[in-house]
Design a protein around this nucleic acid. Structure first.
Lengths: 223, 223
DNA sequence: CCGGGGGTCATACCCCGGTATCACCCCGGC
DNA sequence: GCCGGGGTGATACCGGGGTATGACCCCCGG
């Protein structure tokens, strides 16, 4: 089964070069190319490639926006290609945006041709691949990050399921009445639960409870 | 300038195989090998290699602990090699620990020999490299993460400096009295500020204010 | 010069939130 | 059977938090 690829780059030379390189592989078909993001997205919709090679900087619509549209398609569009981002030289902040958008890889154009070919195969297989410098940055960034909140703060274990539930609703900003309604309880019962939560966690009021919920990872910013 | 490498793995066959493979490269010298983590660390201290190939699972001291010791050496030890982790097959949670410890790469042993050699060179050059499946997971993990909240939520701009200051103290869990004391104000003034904050942000009470502070990135979990 | 926004504070009021105490039910384990 | 923990709830109290209104000061820009 051959890998269907399209190339999106504003430089004709680059398109021609990559196309020649990839088309020479028995397992790779270049099924089209486009000169900017908008055309790229459109082409992808028609040609339904397995992999889209996407330059970052382009006129009309840049590679990031195009990638986002391909990877988070509007309702009705079922096709969802893998996206391999390419950049000419500098490893800038685009990387993060691209990865967040769901790109499967990020390569520098000055990488050896063999790497590009290998990358296409890797990406088509559902795996991911990054340029070494990008990998380094990503790892550094990852390591710097606090540690993925395996926290579930020890103290949180002291709470009963119900109490945890109430705590979470507090952390969502609900009033006692609202919590009572949500859980089908008397307001007083909610108060009782809250009282116990505050006592167990040595908190003064619901505001501190909200803080605790965030700090412990019970709830997380941005959903 | 040749790359000095040591190999740490409990299987003699693996050590021999990798050593032969790498030693055949003109730019790579295998300057030693060890059968467990403890010996590996000791050897590294003596042989000061550029790159340490480290198996994850080993008796005595596993690769993760050994990597941590190499990458975060006790005072007095200046040498700090790059560490390239290897695992036999499964991509388990060790990956994250290894990366957090500061490893420069993570490869599967079933990777093509050429990849291993390339990886050693990449790592020696100060870059990083991961097995595609690891890369995929890392990206997925990265993308899942809230997004570095450079938000400073637009609405937050509507707040005056003083109001923002008060909001932050609320988000730290202080009471009105405490805030007044901290800012050398009358409690009533604090109330006034809070009232305006709540109004401007359409919040009901300080609990919701805390939520807003976290969601907007004004304050962040884990300091 | 004057208007207005930011910052400060007082008085007054109300109610939600938090505390205390007690009580009932259900269930699982000793 | 009894005990204890989890869950539920009522009554009662009070104090902090939030609201409303009005006032004064400072400073800056039109």
């Amino acid at each position: 089964m051959t890998i269907r690829v399209i190339i999106v780059d504003d430089q004709a030379m680059v398109r021609a070069g990559f196309a020649a390189l990839l088309a020479a592989q028995p397992d790779i078909d270049v099924v089209g190319d486009a000169a900017d993001g908008r055309q790229g997205v459109e082409l992808s919709r028609r040609a339904h490639p397995d992999v889209v090679l996407m330059d970052v900087r382009m006129p009309e619509m840049d590679g990031l926006e195009a990638a986002r549209r391909l990877l988070d398609p509007p309702p009705g569009v079922v096709h969802r290609p893998k996206v391999l981002m390419l950049t000419t030289f500098d490893v800038d902040d685009y990387v993060y945006e691209a990865l967040r958008a769901g790109a499967s890889g990020f390569l520098l154009k000055d990488a050896p041709p063999a790497d590009l070919i290998a990358a296409v195969r890797v990406v088509a297989a559902g795996e991911a691949l990054l340029a070494p410098s990008v990998t380094r940055r990503l790892i550094a960034d990852f390591a710097a990050r606090p540690a993925p909140r395996r926290n579930r703060s020890v103290r949180l274990n002291g709470l009963t399921p119900r109490e945890t539930e109430v705590l979470e609703l507090i952390a969502r900003g609900l009033s006692n009445q609202e919590i009572a309604a949500r859980l089908v309880l008397a307001e007083q019962t909610v108060k009782t639960h809250i009282g116990r939560v505050l006592a167990k966690l040595s908190l003064r009021d619901r505001a501190q409870a909200v803080i605790f919920a965030y700090e412990s990872g019970l709830v997380t910013p941005g959903e």
